[in-house]
Design a protein around this nucleic acid. Sequence first.
RNA 1: GGGCGCGUAGCUCAGCGGGAGAGCACCUCGUUGACAUCGAGGGGGUCACAGGUUCGAUCCCUGUCGCGCCCA
Length: 954
Amino acid sequence: MAMIEKTYQPAEIEGRIARAWEDADAFKAGRPDRRDAEPYSIVIPPPNVTGSLHMGHALNNTLQDILCRFERMRGRDVLWQPGTDHAGIATQMVVERQLMERQEPGRREMGRAKFLERVWQWKAESGGVIVNQLKRLGASCDWSRERFTMDEGLSRAVVKVFVELHRQGLIYKDKRLVNWDPKLLTAISDLEVQQIEVKGNLWHLRYPIEGVSFDPENPASYIVVATTRPETMLGDTAVAVNPDDERYVDLVGKHVILPLVGRRIPIVADEYSDPEKGSGAVKITPAHDFNDFEVGKRHHLPQINVLDIEGKIAIADNSAYLEGLPEGAREFAEEIDGTDRFAARKLIVGRLDEFGFLEKIEPNVHMVPHGDRSGVVIEPYLTDQWYVDAKTMAQPAIAAVRSGATTFVPKNWEKTYYEWMENIQPWCISRQLWWGHQIPAWYGPDGKVFVAETEEEAIGNALGYYVEQEVITPAQAHEMTQDASKRDGFITRDEDVLDTWFSSALWPFSTLGWPDETPELERYYPTNVLVTGFDIIFFWVARMMMMGLHFKNDVPFPTVYIHALVRDEKGAKMSKSKGNVIDPLHLIDDYGADALRFTLAAMAAQGRDIKLASSRVEGYRNFATKLWNACRFAEMNACAAPTGFDHTTAKETLNRWIAHETVRAVRDVTEAIESYRFNDAAGAAYRFVWNVYCDWYLELAKPVLMGEDSAAKTETRAMVAWARDEILKLLHPFMPFITEELWAVTAQRDGLLVLAPWSRKAELSVEVFASPVLTDPMVPPVILPARQDAEFSDPAAEAEIGWVVDLVTAIRSVRAEMNIVPSTLTPLVLAGASAETRARAERWSDVIKRLARVGEISFTDAAPQGAVQLLVRGEVAALPLKGVIDLAAEQARLDKELAKAEADIKRVDAKLSNEKFVANAPEEIVEEEKEKREAAVARKVKILEALLRLKNAT
RNA sequence: GGGCGCGUAGCUCAGCGGGAGAGCACCUCGUUGACAUCGAGGGGGUCACAGGUUCGAUCCCUGUCGCGCCCA
């Protein structure tokens, strides 16, 4: 056991403590000593492998760590499952950028296999950054079980899920409009698209009516359509008007001739067209707009894709485009072919204007979809992709929350969850990337799909099928089975990979070994709680619910705690691409991980976002220093708790008081953590340590500790140490490093604090009766309060110490007001004191003298003349300061007090004289008011007496 | 347009049907033997605004204004 260092230096202790935990396997799940303990498990929301720790991670993981450390101390067998996800797009971008910077061949040049090698190499070198940062934060994950979504085991889970869902018809391939990223050249999901407000235009175009000679001067010769994307007109296949719009009733069923293009397209009536907007007529481009796609389906319109994957016009060799066009159309097609979509817009608008087809341009602010990774404008694009039937899978997930099998904390997020789940769209899971889980689907020469868990199985199925179809002979099939090169070009694997969230959705069970039936799966699934930010409800929570229910037939977690988002100073969401990230590691460097953690916990009130001020972190660093110095004080006074020390049998009032306060603080903190009120827990701990233990207990104990050896001194030394140990335990979930360090240096310990028992037992436990009713799943198990040892409490001690505190505070306050310098000791006269007060004053005279700068303490019947008279718990404490005090000032002070007392009486009287109040208010409230009145009246009497004496003195 | 949430001390934020709180900042005082990363004391708020419900509203309801986020 070492001595406590003179000053608290977080940087010096944090690394050392982290190693001690690691060496002791403290965070390991399934420790032999906890084999019979109740398990407690949390899966970490896997951070992106390319990521580094930001404030959101810091908050998220601090809260999880508080829960894990708390439950670990309560004796549970805790598994906090760590890991990272492979972040398909982000990682691929990082590695591609690296190749570019090093002027190495690009992805396509080196080919898929080589590129993937490079990605794995990058992962090995740089992929562990965030894990180490989490360790610096103190996260008590079972690091030996770290997983990665591209691990062999997790990949097996992905394949299994894909194949099973496909077999069940819940995964299918479809040609639909997707959100296409023309920069990254992949489909992305709705959630990866950000709607950004853009100042654009509304172009009003004139589409000539068929059979009428077009004349810009004659409105009857054309119909005006308004659009934000004029370049997509190349793919228009109709004009829609609202069926109730009288302006256009006569035009429905007629045709227009698409300007520049020459295509003959119908005017259709559809509710989608809003008569209030633009001209009331809209162009319909089914292949390039989600709404138009639906309109097109309703009216059986052709879908003409006029862009290539990079967003360039592609119509020259486009049969869908060219079909039915007049002679000469090809010329225009060739002219504009290959033009980027934005350049094409300019060109087309110019050309329309030239020929009188442009009526006007109106400035227009509207939302434009952007890729959250690439930042470019997303193109609705018609492609073949794989989808999950999310609507079907959402049903059990919705039911689970409705039934309460899973609940959200705070509750209001359930509404967001339902909102999303009830309007859920098919989930596009394929991505045109290389980094990720390649889709286990193989295609035959006719495009037929064979989905299987292994290539062998898929090939076998495919070849069998084609033999049966007599496309190939059994001999050819045999050859292809034997020699992979022989089947090249005959059977090919789907190039695409799965959305990263597809694998993340399996995280709560794939990390435990699924699809194998492992002991871990049996023991730790379902997990106890999921801790995450609301921005991830759709991405992740919803999908874990779907997958967990489908494959494990049970919710992945009974509770979802949704915490605040840590925003930047403008209240904007922090994101790497915006570059507004505040680095928590800098805060750790400056103030220590404990201070950062405590700050985040203290600010984690439910239902409110966090805008972090570094002054708060500094404040909590000071709190850590305070704790450090208090422990040094205890050490300097040889405070140690003997083995078997029982705080409930203490004799000294002061010691009984701190025992009372400590038990209360432990209860408050425990209950707050249990109900996820982290800020209340942190606040209760803070106030107890600083404002109770340091400010009063240690101060009041000083005379005893500095005095002669005695039984009281021995007991006080033990109690100082006992309460300190309770504090270290209480604070450990919040400030693990400093508490572990202090635990080690303040006494000989049996083990690390991280594994020490929490002082308050769990309130509830599930009582399982050997009753047949319990086998009925409709009957919930009976939950009874566990036997809680009668809580230690001592109201008498509280009353006595409370009196001392009030007396000292009152004297200090009046001394400061009177500008009495600290070196001046004032006598204290207790007037008309009860026997109890007298006894208390004698017992606490040392303390009172020291803390209140008091000289002599005496007792009289009435306060001496010309003294400052204080009211302490209904009795007068006088400071005879004749000559020192300003009598006029004292008069003013007492007048103010009097006014206050009278105001109180008046306010209470107003209430009590109100019949309705007395009749309607709860009895205890009325009773309280009466007591308040009595107290105020008593105060008034004493103040009046005091004023009278003051007058006599002058 | 729909949904969620927020406007409380100079700043960052708790609280929430019965006497307005914390941290930081500010002012005054302090080399008292753990701590100046400290101690003592103090100033500072018609709890956005307007109605309503109630015996009683910062808290519940409605509306207005301002702000943020999510979804269309």
